[in-house]
C-alpha cells in the first residue's frame, strides 16, 4: 500500500490516480488544525467518512459530559472543505465563506463521524451539506451547510 502524503505530484494527478479516501487523507494532512484534532478517514465501505476521535480536551460541558459545539463545527467545516476540494477538477483549495450549523442532539463523549454531500459544485462556489453522528447515521447529532469559494486564479502560482 502506498500513502501519498508528501508527494511532489500535482493534486490534479493525485485525484485521478488515487482512490477517493486517499485523496481526502492527503487534503486532511495539510490542515494543521485537522492534525491537531486527530481527524482521520477510517475505511468505510459506505463511502467517505471523516472521524473525530474522542479525547478529553474536546469536552465542552463537564457536567453532561458533552462535546464542545465548536469542535463539531470544526469537524463539519473541515469535512466540507476536503469534500469540495476533492470534487473540484483542479483540486483547488477553497475558502470557507460561511457555515450554518444546527445542533440536533447532545454530542456524547465518544467518537464522532461526518459525511459530506455536495449540494452544488460550481466553478466558483460549492455548497456542501455535512451530517455528523455517533452511534447510528440515522440519528444525526449535528448537521451543517457550508458555502465555499474557489480562487479563480491559482494562489500557488
Amino acid at each position: 500500500m502506498t500513502t501519498i502524503v508528501n508527494s511532489a505530484k500535482p493534486y490534479s494527478e493525485l485525484t485521478q490516480s488515487s482512490d477517493e479516501s486517499t485523496v481526502y487523507q492527503t487534503f486532511l494532512a495539510r490542515i494543521p488544525y485537522a492534525r491537531h484534532l486527530g481527524l482521520d478517514i477510517p475505511k468505510d465501505p459506505a463511502g467517505i467518512v471523516v472521524r473525530l476521535p474522542f479525547h478529553e480536551a474536546l469536552i465542552g460541558n463537564f457536567m453532561l459530559p458533552a462535546l464542545h459545539g465548536g469542535v463539531l463545527g470544526a469537524l463539519i467545516e473541515i469535512t466540507a472543505r476536503i469534500a469540495a476540494q476533492s470534487e473540484d477538477g483542479k483540486a483547488r483549495c477553497p475558502r470557507i465563506l460561511d457555515s450554518n450549523i444546527n445542533y440536533l442532539r447532545s454530542a456524547q463523549a465518544k467518537h464522532t463521524f461526518a459525511s459530506a454531500e455536495i449540494i452544488r459544485q460550481g466553478r466558483r462556489t460549492s455548497l456542501v451539506q455535512v451530517t455528523c453522528w455517533q452511534d447510528e447515521k440515522s440519528r444525526p447529532i449535528t448537521t451543517g451547510r457550508v458555502q465555499l469559494l474557489f480562487a479563480t486564479t491559482d494562489i500557488n502560482s
Partner: peptide, 16 residues
C-alpha cells in the same frame, strides 16, 4: 492554521 502553506487562522477556530 488553515493550511501548511499559509499563516491564516482556520475558520473553525473562529467558529469555536
Amino acid at each position: 492554521f488553515a493550511d501548511d502553506d499559509c499563516e491564516e487562522i482556520c475558520t473553525s477556530i473562529l467558529y469555536s
